[in-house]
C-alpha cells in the first residue's frame, strides 16, 4: 500500500515542476510590477505552440525545439513590459490586472491566427520512447514493490531544480537579484538609490515568460493536449500557491506550488480505500477547501511575514 502511495506521489512530480515554474514566474512579476500576471499562462501556451511547430514541421528534437519557444516567450515578455507596463506605471493594481487580462485576449486571438486550429498537436516528451525497446518509466524496487517514475518526469525534476536553483542563487547574490529585491520592497526608493528599475522589471518579465514556456513544454510533454487555454489550470494553481506560501518571500510560493499538486494526488489516493471510490472527483475541492482554511487562519500565507499597516 505504501509503495503504491509513493507511486501516486511520484506521478504528481511533473505537475509539481510545471506549477513551480509558473509560480516562480508569477511571484517575480508580482514582486516587480505589483500585479497578478494573468497572461502568464497564455504566454506560455504561445511559446509551446512555437516549440510544437518546430517539432512537427522541421523535425527538431524537443530539447532543441524548446529554445525557439523560450526565445519567443522572452521577446514577448520584454515587449509587454516595454510597450505596456512601462507606460502604464500610474495605473493602479486592479487596472494592471485588467491589462494582463487584455493581453490574454490578444494572445488567445493571435494563436489561432498564427498557428491555425488543428484538431490536435502531437508533442513529444523529453525522453523519447519512439526508439525500440525503451520504456518510458523507471521501476524502482522498494520495500517489495515497485515505484513507477516516468523518465520525462525525472528529467523535468532535474531541469526544474537546476533552473529554480540558479534563479534563487541569482536573486541572492547577483546585482539583478539585489535590484529585484529592492524594487520589490519599494520601487521609488530603489530608483532613488540609483537602481535602473526599468531594466529590472523588463528582465523579470523576460525570465517569467521564459519560465512559463519551459513549464508549458514540460506539461505538454507529459501528454496534456495543447490548446490556447491548456495552461490555465497550472496558472490558477500558481496564484493559489503564491497565496498559500505567502507572496512576501520567494521561497514561500515555491513551497506552496510543491504542496498543492502533491496534496491533490494524495487525496486522490484515498480512492483506493473501500467506500471512498468517488473521492477522485472531489480531490481538488478538498485541497482548495483545506487551503482556504489555512489562509483564513494565517492570512499572510504559511511563510509570509505579517505586514503592519500604518494610517
Amino acid at each position: 500500500m505504501f509503495v503504491s502511495f509513493l507511486s501516486t506521489i511520484c506521478a504528481s512530480l511533473l505537475v509539481v515542476c510545471v506549477t513551480v515554474m509558473c509560480t516562480f514566474a508569477v511571484t517575480l512579476i508580482f514582486k516587480t510590477s505589483t500585479t497578478t500576471n494573468f497572461a502568464e499562462g497564455s504566454l506560455a501556451a504561445l511559446g509551446c505552440y512555437v516549440t510544437a511547430t518546430c517539432l512537427n514541421k522541421y523535425n527538431i528534437p524537443v530539447y532543441i525545439g524548446v529554445f525557439p519557444g523560450i526565445a519567443v516567450g522572452v521577446v514577448l515578455g520584454l515587449l509587454i513590459d516595454v510597450a505596456i507596463f512601462r507606460r502604464g506605471r500610474n495605473v493602479n493594481a486592479v487596472g494592471k490586472q485588467i491589462i494582463t487580462m487584455g493581453i490574454v485576449s490578444i494572445i488567445f486571438g493571435a494563436i489561432p491566427l498564427i498557428f491555425g486550429t488543428p484538431e490536435s498537436i502531437p508533442f513529444e516528451p523529453f525522453y523519447n520512447t519512439k526508439k525500440a525497446g525503451t520504456s518510458a518509466n523507471f521501476l524502482i524496487p522498494f520495500m517489495g514493490g515497485k515505484i513507477v517514475l516516468t523518465k520525462h518526469g525525472l528529467i523535468c525534476v532535474i531541469i526544474t531544480v537546476i533552473v529554480i536553483g540558479v534563479l534563487f542563487l541569482l536573486l541572492k547574490h547577483s546585482k539583478w537579484g539585489l535590484g529585484v529585491r529592492c524594487a520589490a520592497s519599494n520601487e521609488y526608493t530603489a530608483e532613488l538609490m540609483g537602481i535602473n528599475t526599468h531594466v529590472i522589471t523588463a528582465m523579470s518579465w523576460a525570465i517569467a515568460a521564459g519560465l512559463g514556456v519551459l513549464g508549458a513544454v514540460m506539461y505538454a510533454g507529459g501528454g496534456v493536449m495543447i490548446s490556447t487555454s491548456f495552461m490555465v489550470t497550472p496558472m490558477v494553481n500558481a496564484f493559489l500557491a503564491g497565496i498559500l506560501g505567502g507572496f512576501s518571500t520567494f521561497y514561500g510560493p515555491v513551497i506552496g506550488a510543491i504542496i498543492i499538486p502533491i496534496a491533490a494526488n494524495a487525496v486522490g489516493f484515498l480512492a483506493n480505500f473501500p467506500g471512498m471510490s468517488s473521492i477522485s472527483r472531489w480531490n481538488m475541492v478538498i485541497v482548495y477547501a483545506a487551503m482556504l482554511v489555512v489562509i483564513l487562519i494565517k492570512p499572510s500565507g504559511l511563510f509570509g511575514k505579517k505586514i503592519v499597516k500604518k494610517v
Binding site: M101, G102, S105, I106, F108, G109, A110, P112, L113
Partner: peptide
C-alpha cells in the same frame, strides 16, 4: 480570432 484580439487591444 480577430474579434478576441480587438477586444483585448481595446481593454489595454
Amino acid at each position: 480570432a480577430f474579434i478576441t484580439m480587438v477586444t483585448g487591444v481595446l481593454i489595454v
